[in-house]
């Protein structure tokens, strides 16, 4: 998979189409995000499959947004899986990135990863490497929903009580781009508490993920307390889909998030 990506990136860099390429690189034995700016640097480019497929994914879109804010005229390439592409489309629709300044280089995730992620679309629209895998249902959501309402509440309260309030779920999130964050505002949350106000802190974040979360799962991976945040946000995404027929990143990026427009309220 690496070689096909390298060849594509080499072509993009050599032709001058892109100023730099956001990918992953082996550095001092570790894998981390790297901005490739020369075709000669590509030897150590990797796609983030170290021991298992997709075990070293990073929020490359987020790094791209930060860089594009400083260099808005430059065109950058970026490595995308299905989730990353949903992230790009969502960032386009929220005007955080200009699609004309981004060249995605896609890879398709293998079946094993698609199932581990319970990913509905484990491939971008176009990809240079990998095989198209089958989308997977949200088994984790169904598991929690099989509990009684009372046990479900208990489950989430127990999970949220583990929180050490590192804000890692927000900091790693490719679609968390607000300059001011409700989770830091004393008017909304008692910011001095640890564990944070339960369940308000996490439910506030979950509500803010509605119409935005692209189900990449990086929050889940970054959580030092192993809170199954991805399951929670998958459920939020299901609700938005049921109510508004909208899933962030799956449709046309010109389409606005339903929570970003004033329209008719859902009818019940």
């Amino acid at each position: 998979m690496n070689e096909k990506v390298k060849a594509k990136v080499k072509e993009l860099l050599a032709s001058g189409r892109i100023k730099g390429f956001w990918g992953l690189r082996t550095m001092q034995g570790n894998i981390g995000p790297f901005l490739f700016s020369s075709p000669d640097d590509l030897d150590e480019l990797v796609v983030g499959d170290r021991e298992r497929p997709g075990d070293t994914r990073y929020p490359l879109n987020k790094l791209l947004v930060n860089l594009a804010r400083c260099y808005p005229e430059e065109v950058f390439g970026v490595l995308v899986r299905g989730c990353d592409e949903r992230g790009l489309k969502t960032l386009y629709s929220w005007n955080q990135l200009n699609p004309e300044k981004v060249v995605p280089v896609g890879i398709a995730c293998p079946q094993e990863l698609a199932e581990a992620c319970e990913c509905l679309k484990p491939f971008p629209d176009e990809f240079v490497a990998g095989e198209k895998a089958e989308g997977s249902e949200f088994v984790s959501v169904a598991n929690v929903e099989s509990l009684s309402l009372e046990s479900r509440l208990e489950h989430w309260l127990d999970q949220f009580a583990k929180c050490i309030k590192c804000y890692g779920c927000r900091d790693i999130c490719p679609v968390c781009f607000c300059k001011e964050c409700t989770l830091e505002k004393d008017d909304f949350i008692h910011t001095g508490d640890l564990p944070p106000e339960n369940p308000i802190f996490h439910l506030t974040r979950a509500v803010h993920m509605a119409g935005r979360c692209i189900d990449c799962g990086l929050c889940n991976e970054a959580c030092p307390a192993d809170i199954p945040l991805r399951t929670l946000y998958k459920k939020v995404a299901d609700i938005i889909d049921e109510e508004f027929h909208y899933r962030p990143g799956y449709g046309d990026p010109k389409e606005k998030s339903p929570l970003n427009i004033l329209g008719e309220a859902p009818k019940h």
């Binding site: 050490i164 309030k165 590192c166 790693i172 991976e221 959580c223 030092p224």
Partner: peptide, 18 residues
């Protein structure tokens, strides 16, 4: 950005590290 491959933290950090 927390490093995913360092064995001590495996892609996680506390609020100070972040």
């Amino acid at each position: 950005i927390p490093c995913k491959t360092t064995p001590v933290n495996e892609g996680k950090l506390c609020v100070k590290g972040w």
